[in-house]
Nucleic acid binder design. Structure first.
Length: 625
RNA sequence: GCGCGUGUAGCUCAGCUGGAUAGAGCGUUGGCUUGCGGAGCCAAAGGUCGUAGGUUCGAAUCCUGCCACGCGUACCA
């Protein structure tokens, strides 16, 4: 964001921004990325596939591409087998492939897997094969789990580009809580997509155009003509806009005035454009403060206004024959209407393009400019049918075509409502409750009180830093812990709840581990690494290590489902395993050096996975709280 | 009306693309702890998975009908 005054300067600045993003995208797509999956997790699956493929290769019915390891499931929690089962392999699907009895096949598979030196125990239980992984396998890969800062990342989607559209606040309005979910979910998904190898372009599709800007500029002329627009501040802008919107409801004269101003703006009136640029600058500064606070960064801020001229051109050149039945081009008026499941006006009877026209132009622009594999839209579920219609038209009109490559996929990523603690819809109209800054302040205040109470020796500044991290983390976790499409309650008490499934609980386990590690000297840490024991000293250590080895699998699932809550669920389970490990596997004050070394390594691996996992959710970590 | 989505323990939610006796947290009840951060750990009670059918070796998960709730539904974004 540089300092520009005129609309031309602004456009020039935006063009630079776009150019930079295109170059970065190109570099990202060409780059070869590394795979940081746990060696243990990978070897277990490869071993099962190799052994079973070899074993069943003589059977004529076998599909050679059958992925045996894909059948692996976690054993039921209460299975009464008497030993710790790490994975269970149901043999129903395999048996169907072979045309044989599942129980017999299970026996055969068990015999086959017993030969492997990766597994400590393999037994059948009817049609299931229960598998226990050897401690040594998990222990071997523990070092990379602890040390690799990129642990968990995979390169499945390297050379693929995804444009992700999220946040998109409305210019000249306060950054409201209604844009919180899209911002949080969009940022987390961007990070998760990057972790599976995508190159991601984060585009903030600002709501910086539309009839409300006519109203805004008319409001200025009506209520505050004595203040030059260039000197107007955000509060005044909001005040006159709200007043205008109110009075407009009962005054046709004001309504007409708003329309007239929008008409002049749409035609490019120089003075009004300059005023518009001023409003945009004010808003961007305010938005940036929120993004800094939330730790969110965008590649581009290409608002709707950028697409106005393009949209007229695009609509005029739409291939009418291909869109017959889907899009109506009126003969008498310039109106263009889409008759999808969700009827959408593209060009009004007065000849103005509305948001649908700009959304189509946006698809066109993104495909032309970035040639991405995907364009993701992180938007409230209530707009699902609207976007399905837009996507359908874009596809039919050929806007998603790429040269010598598959069409760009347009994908809607919807989410549920944000409700207050009583389960009612949060409303921007009801005073301050709608402003994101106020809401974050309220959470931070609560976190500050709590931090102060627990750390009376800390100075105010340290308390503030901790409270800021914890409160932002709590808000994000609250939003991401549940499935996207379900609605989320904004309950400050529950967010900062001690224990439970708040992020505070996870940060607490993190701080307990880091506290131990901080007490150890560098010499202790390094000298201990050389002689690890051959086995774990307890079952819960084994389970923790196994869980840690599955990080990549979880990231892949979260990416495939476009759902950060899968990651949140994993981190919760991990934290639960940590509880017992911390209580029962002591580190400091024990004589067995090898044992201590192994446990320290587990703590380090835990700290690494938790901080990486939280980072994928854009949650800041802190080892004091 | 039509379209999309959601119904799982008292409450808030998971349930890994159809697998064994449906799992967590809060709350309730009981227990542990002279110790690495007790904001902890262990355990118990608590469920005809909205409802009626269907598909198959097997369904909370897939299909159909019905019920309840939420959202969207033409010139606002």
């Amino acid at each position: 964001m540089t300092d520009y005054q005129t609309y031309e300067d602004y456009r020039e600045d935006l063009q630079k921004q776009i150019k930079g993003a295109v170059v970065r995208a190109k570099i990202g797509v060409e780059a070869v990325k590394e795979d940081h999956e746990s060696a243990a997790a990978k070897r277990i699956r490869e071993e099962i596939d190799n052994l079973l493929e070899k074993h069943f290769s003589q059977s004529p019915q076998t599909d050679t591409s059958f992925a045996y390891s894909a059948q692996l499931v976690s054993p039921p929690k209460n299975a009464k087998v008497g030993w710790t089962v790490d994975y269970a392999l149901p043999t129903f699907a395999i048996s169907r492939q072979l045309g044989r009895n599942p129980v017999d096949v299970a026996g055969e598979i068990a015999d086959c897997l017993k030969d492997s030196d990766l597994f400590a125990r393999v037994e059948t239980s009817g049609p299931y094969v229960n598998i226990g992984v050897k401690d040594s396998l998990l222990l071997e890969s523990l070092n990379s789990l602890a040390d690799d800062p990129h642990y968990g990342q995979v390169n499945d989607h390297q050379h693929e580009l995804a444009v992700i559209d999220y946040s998109s606040p409305n210019v000249a309005k306060p950054f409201g809580v209604n844009h919180l979910r899209t911002t949080i979910i969009g940022e987390s998904l961007s990070r998760i997509f990057e972790a599976v190898g995508y190159t991601v372009v984060r585009d903030n599709h600002l709501g910086d155009w539309g009839t409300q800007f006519g109203n805004l500029l008319a409001a200025h002329a009506e209520y505050a003509p004595e203040i030059p627009f260039s000197q107007i501040d955000m509060d005044t802008l909001n005040r006159i806009y709200v007043r205008f919107s109110q009075e407009m409801k009962t005054s046709d004269a004001l309504k007409r005035k708003g329309q007239e101003y929008f008409s002049r703006l749409e035609k490019g009136d120089a003075l009004l454009m300059e005023n518009w640029v001023h409003a945009l600058k004010l808003s961007l500064a305010e938005f940036q403060a929120m993004y800094d606070r939330l730790g969110v960064k965008f590649d581009t801020f290409i608002g709707e206004a950028y697409y106005v001229n393009r949209s007229y051109e695009l609509i005029a050149n739409l291939p009418k024959e291909k869109l017959r039945g889907l899009v109506e081009f009126s003969d008498e008026s310039p109106a263009v209407v889409i008759n999808g499941q969700h009827p959408v006006v593209v060009i009004t009877g007065d000849g103005y393009g509305v948001y649908a026209a700009r959304d189509l132009a946006t698809v066109d622009f993104r495909v032309q400019e970035f040639k991405p594999e995907y364009i993701f839209y992180v938007v409230g579920e209530e707009q699902a049918s609207y976007f399905q219609t837009i996507f359908e038209v874009a596809k039919q009109a050929g806007l998603t075509k790429r040269e010598s490559a598959n069409d760009t996929e347009l994908e809607f990523i919807g989410f549920g409502l944000l409700l207050d603690k009583d389960g009612k819809k949060l409303s921007t109209r009801k005073g301050t409750s709608g402003k994101l800054e106020d809401v974050l302040d309220a959470v931070e205040l609560r976190a500050t009180e709590e931090t102060k109470k627990r750390n009376p020796e800390l100075d105010d500044n340290s308390v503030r830093l901790i409270a800021r991290k914890v409160s932002v983390g709590a808000v994000i976790w609250n939003d991401l812990k549940a499935d996207r499409v379900s609605s989320v309650r904004f309950d400050i008490d529950r967010m900062l709840e001690l224990g439970g499934d708040s992020v505070v609980d996870i940060l607490y386990t993190f701080s307990r581990s880091t506290s131990i590690l901080n007490k150890l000297s560098v010499a202790e840490l390094t000298s201990l690494e050389t002689d690890l024991p051959k086995t774990f000293s307890s079952d819960h250590e084994h389970r923790l290590a196994l869980k840690l080895s599955e990080f990549s699998i979880v990231i892949k699932r979260a990416a495939a489902a476009r759902s950060p809550h899968i990651l949140a669920g994993y981190l919760s389970e991990l934290a639960q395993l940590h509880g017992r490990f911390y209580e029962e596997s002591r580190v400091i004050g024990i004589d067995d050096k090898a044992l201590a070394a192994m446990r320290i390594l587990l703590h380090r691996a835990y700290v690494n996975v938790i901080s990486s996992g939280l980072s994928l959710m854009n949650i800041p970590v802190t080892d004091r709280l």
